[in-house]
């Protein structure tokens, strides 16, 4: 069994088509898309249509919401927050109108039906983390934060896409001792241990011009393979394999 895991499409239909072709060569059983389907651009609507209507022989993508979808929901008053504060902080006030114009109300209604993430076997697949779509887990994030995010849903693997980076972060081993004193005195010291927990950044399909990245995961072996796909005019049709 193999899963292809994508994120960060941000309306880049060309990049998605290139990745989809590449995916089909790897005979994957499941196609997960961890959010950021849309972006502040004219091609987002077409990309959504493409996601909604897979062609014959193509895997049906399992899709969850990302940071950009969350912003759309907020703009259309479906969000958990009343104001698009995060959007304005990051991209300025004019982005509100740009995004509003880029993503139709019909698409936003569809976005509402998407999941926050998927829990398959011992794997959590989501855009940010178990905390929120905005949670930006990176190669230099503290292992305690990683432990917390995994632990919230008792997962051994967390696949995420917020950083846009491809990384495999392993907590190979961990231990910590605790002593608790209450009004009834001290309780025996306990040692908490953990091992082999993974947080995987799956890369991004559409953020880097002419270079898409995604991840193939084999649940049986735990093998994580990073894929990169060059596409576009003048870049050839070659398939740059990840090292």
């Amino acid at each position: 069994m193999k899963w292809a895991i994508l994120s960060g499409l941000v309306g880049n239909l060309t990049a998605y088509e290139a990745v989809l072709q590449d995916v089909q060569q790897h005979q994957v059983d499941e196609l997960y898309i961890l959010g950021d389907l849309v972006g502040p651009n004219a091609t987002s609507e077409a990309l959504v249509k493409r996601l909604q209507n897979p062609r014959k022989g193509e895997p049906t993508p399992q899709i969850c919401t990302g940071w950009w979808e969350e912003q759309c929901l907020i703009l259309h008053a479906y969000g958990q927050k009343p104001e698009p504060t995060a959007l304005i902080e990051k991209y300025g006030a004019e982005m509100v109108k740009t995004l509003w114009d880029a993503v139709s109300r019909e698409t936003v209604t569809w976005i509402r039906s998407l999941e926050f993430g998927f829990m398959e076997l011992d794997c959590l697949l989501t855009h940010g983390s178990s905390v929120s779509v905005a949670d930006d887990l990176r190669p230099d994030t503290s292992p305690l934060v990683m432990c917390d995010r995994l632990g919230r849903l008792d997962a051994n693997y967390l696949f995420c896409g917020r950083s846009g980076l491809q990384f495999n972060y392993q907590i190979a081993d961990g231990s910590s001792t605790s002593t608790v004193i209450t009004l009834n005195g001290a309780t025996p010291t306990t040692t908490m241990e953990t091992s082999n927990k993974f947080v995987v950044g799956v890369g991004n399909v559409g953020l880097t011009p002419n270079l898409a990245s995604y991840t193939v995961y084999s649940p049986a072996s735990g093998q994580v393979n990073f894929k990169q796909v060059s596409y576009g005019f003048g870049k050839g049709f070659g398939n740059r394999k990840a090292s």
């Binding site: 190669p139 292992p143 305690l144 432990c147 980076l165 491809q166 990384f167 495999n168 972060y169 392993q170 907590i171 190979a172 081993d173 961990g174 231990s175 910590s176 001792t177 605790s178 002593t179 608790v180 004193i181 953990t194 890369g203 990245s213 990073f226 990169q228 990840a242």
Partner: peptide, 15 residues
């Protein structure tokens, strides 16, 4: 609660 002797071994592969 006293949290002591914490050790975590981290390995990161990054593209």
């Amino acid at each position: 609660r006293t949290l002591d002797q914490t050790k975590m071994l981290v390995k990161v592969e990054q593209q």
